[in-house]
Simulated scan of single mutants.
Amino acid sequence: MKKMYTLIVLLCIAWGAEAQNYKFQALFMYNIAQRIEWPNLAGEFVIGVIGSKEMHQELESIAQKKQLFGNSIKVVHVNADELSGKLYHVLYLDRSSSVKLGDVKKQVVSKPTLLITDKNGLTGGGINFIDNSSKIEFEIFPTVIKSHQLHLSGSLLNLGIVRE
């Protein structure tokens, strides 16, 4: 019985840490978006989330309180196969959806879209969060980001681990 209680406590702690991680990553995403120059930004700033319902909820919480460049933020849960013809300023792929990065890239190749994944070491996206329990870090791929007509601020490059 004691082992059962210990297991339940450990699961609750792990769940709480995971929820906190989504909150911090969502705040990082908001701050990253502020450090990018977006072309033709008018109307809503749209963030698409592929996979994680928890990340969608955290971003939605931010969207209710904040704006980006004077624009309201719209957060939508999207399917990786249904991106064509729509503009997403940011697309977030959770770890389980990262296998779809190649397909996602093909659909947004010429659009000003920042691809953010939750899997470090993944090539092809603009930013990857690094799984590190002690702090949130991210890899940043300036060449990929610039290929999407997005301009980075120097302060963003100083915050992440730059990869080419």
Rank of each mutant, 00 (worst) to 15 (best):
V75M: 09
N120P: 11
N128H: 10
L101P: 00
S97G: 00
V144S: 03
D131L: 10
V75S: 07
V75F: 10
G102C: 04
T143L: 12
H89M: 01
G126M: 02
G85W: 07
S98H: 05
S96K: 15
Q107R: 11
K106F: 07
L122F: 10
E139N: 08
D118N: 15
T143M: 12
H89T: 01
I130S: 00
G125Q: 13
K86P: 06
N79H: 01
A80K: 07
S72E: 10
V108P: 08
N132C: 10
T123M: 07
I130E: 00
G102M: 07
N128S: 10
L87H: 07
L91T: 10
T143Y: 14
S72N: 15
D81F: 15
A80D: 08
L83T: 07
D131A: 14
G124V: 08
N132T: 12
D94Y: 04
L93T: 13
P112M: 01
K111F: 09
I136P: 05
V144R: 05
R95C: 09
K106T: 12
T117E: 13
S110I: 11
S134D: 13
V108Q: 02
T143V: 12
S72M: 06
E139R: 06
R95F: 12
K74N: 14
N132V: 10
G121T: 06
F138S: 01
H89L: 00
E82F: 14
G124Y: 03
S98F: 05
F129M: 02
N120Q: 14
Y92M: 05
Y88H: 06
S84Y: 12
E82K: 15
H89G: 02
H148E: 05
S133F: 12
I130Q: 01
G125K: 08
S147W: 11
S153V: 01
L152G: 01
I145A: 02
K86H: 15
E82P: 11
G124T: 05
R95A: 14
P142F: 04
V78I: 12
I130H: 00
P112A: 05
V99N: 12
G124F: 06
K135P: 03
V108E: 00
S134A: 13
Q107Y: 08
N79D: 10
K146F: 11
D94E: 07
L91W: 03
Y92Q: 03
Y92S: 03
K146C: 08
S153K: 07
H89S: 00
N132Y: 11
K100S: 06
T117R: 15
